[in-house]
Amino acid sequence: MSAVSLHGVDKRFGEVHALDGIELTVDSGEFVSLIGPSGCGKSTLLRVVADLEQPSAGTVAVGGKAPRQARLDQEYGIAFQQAGLLEWRTVTENVELPLHVHGMSKARRRARAAELLELVGLTEFAGSRPSELSGGMQQRVAIARALAPSPRLLLMDEPFGALDEMTRERMQAELLRIARETGAAVLFVTHSIPEAVVLSDRVVVMSPRPGRITDIVGGRRPGGGDPTDDPTDLAPDDIEDVRESGTFFAAITAVREALRKGHG
């Protein structure tokens, strides 16, 4: 079953035609990036999947369910550009938030939060306040929080957009490893071509007015083969090699050309 499927999705905000005839399927465990100029509807597309916005037309399924049901069942975790941590909660308590909201017992919450902090490498900051953490660390807490209910899908809207380049590259490697370890599908919005290419199985290129998908380019794995049983899959440690590989540059060129085509 696919993690996300959109058919003929349209979204209008009055005069603004934010999404036009969107056809997109994200397989389970697949990493898909959305890229395109500002205002082309990337965030809107993500928000339609998250049931934060209702489509004007078309059908949306998240893990085979209607978006509203998927949201109620915590089928997805979400992270935005701003980490959005609650300042009055410790790091652990922030990670626990989705579980707390759903009434999980304190002991189980604590255990799960410890597991997740281990995953994002922040165990020693469990008792810290968010303001004591760097931007990259805060974003890792936000990712851990999104992962807390073990969702099959991660929705991320420019999560590394506010980070410096070095932190950003580290976080990309981290995210790739986490996605691999949890087996969650990821729908990832970004402005950065290299980021989209280095992370994704497929890069979805969008253009504005109206917001539509103009092209889908294979990411660092040309052709975008099934990520779960690809024997040539790269280990996360090899991400630095990816950045210097020929496929990487070829994919970047392909995405850049697709973007230019969409603009013209």
Partner: peptide, 12 residues
């Protein structure tokens, strides 16, 4: 912030 409110909505 709006993002915080939406986060809570996203968490159902």
């Amino acid at each position: 912030a709006r993002a915080d409110v939406e986060l809570f909505r996203a968490m159902a």
